[in-house]
Amino acid sequence: MTQSKRADLGKDPQRVSGMFDQVAAGYDRTNTVMTFGNDAFWRAATTRAVAPKRGERILDLAAGTASSSASIAMSGADVVAADFSPGMLAEGRRRHGNLKNLSFVEADAMNLPFADDEFDAVTMSYGLRNVQQPKKALAELFRVTKPGGRVVINEFSTPPGKVFRGLYRLYNAQVLPRVARVAGTNGDAYDYLNESIKDWPDQRTLSAWLREVGWTDVAYRNLSFGIVALHRGIKPAKANKPSNTAKATRTARPKKA
């Protein structure tokens, strides 16, 4: 992984997966430190947006160490924690394997090992940036969701305020990797995190991508001044093919939740 550019959007899945394998043990601890505890707030907001119900089947893609998966599973829903990093899943099993309604699956976001219309809801937190073809991952999430089902994407985003955005980018570039190293985590992984956030599209663009693959009622809400954004959508009861939906919604403006 080169020092100059770890995170262009044409990422190699094996290298990225290997990087996350290396940081799995300290991942949650480092995230809490570097977000000043906001990660718990963001996780709670994601769970509320998913609105899980007992008896539902829910996919948590890019589940990492399954912190969000476990939060959702507390509702009584049957949750599948899926990730492409075996190391992250192993750590998730170690921490949350006692939950009977939580299962773990190694999965490629661009080619999910699930049937069509299998899940009542799907969610993905901080993982879409790591996918080589994020639109393809969104289309796969659409495919495996039941008609009438819902999607929740929580992703790092672009703070709308110019001054705060500048301070945030300075923190990511200069402070975040140092904090990770002090916390005992691979700092290169957090250099990667900074670069992937900097290169990632803004809230309106991601909303447009969701519409393009077929999701309707798309909305987003900024959390923590836009450091992250919570995107939501619904799979129509009679879903159009993504290509038809893309034509119909290409000019639609995303709305805020």
Rank of each mutant, 00 (worst) to 15 (best):
S17K: 09
F164Y: 10
V33C: 11
K247F: 14
A63N: 01
N172A: 13
L61H: 08
D117T: 15
M74Q: 14
M34R: 12
W200M: 10
N240H: 14
N186D: 15
Q174P: 12
R181T: 14
A137N: 05
P147L: 01
S67M: 09
N130A: 07
A7L: 09
D8L: 05
Y220G: 02
F164G: 02
E140S: 14
Q133Y: 05
P13M: 11
L176T: 02
D217Y: 06
R93K: 07
V122T: 01
L138C: 03
R165A: 15
A121G: 04
D199H: 02
A180I: 13
A137S: 08
L138Y: 08
L141M: 11
L99Y: 12
R6V: 13
R211A: 04
A208R: 07
Y192F: 01
K241F: 13
D108A: 14
L59A: 06
A90D: 13
S67Y: 07
G55M: 08
W200E: 10
M124P: 01
D83S: 14
F104V: 15
D39K: 11
K100Q: 15
F114S: 11
L210P: 04
T245C: 11
A66F: 01
A237C: 12
E140W: 10
R211V: 02
W200P: 08
R57F: 14
V152H: 00
F114Y: 07
M1E: 15
M19L: 04
N194H: 07
T216C: 11
I227G: 03
D78P: 12
A62I: 11
E56H: 07
L230F: 00
S17W: 05
A24N: 03
V80S: 07
M74T: 15
A77D: 11
S157A: 10
D39E: 10
Q203Y: 03
V80D: 06
P147V: 15
I58A: 00
R54H: 15
V122K: 00
K198M: 11
Q133S: 06
G18Y: 09
D8R: 09
Q3V: 15
V179S: 05
R93L: 09
A248N: 10
F119L: 10
V151N: 00
G92F: 07
F36K: 10
R232K: 07
I153F: 00
K238P: 06
I234R: 02
V23R: 01
V33G: 07
A229S: 09
P177K: 01
D117N: 15
K135E: 06
D191G: 13
T46Q: 00
G233R: 05
G92D: 02
L230P: 00
T46W: 00
K162A: 15
K255F: 14
E212I: 03
Q14Y: 09
A229K: 01
P147S: 10
R129G: 11
D39V: 13
V175D: 05
L61M: 14
L112F: 03
S243W: 11
A73N: 07
M34D: 15
N154G: 01
S4C: 09
N240A: 14
A107R: 08
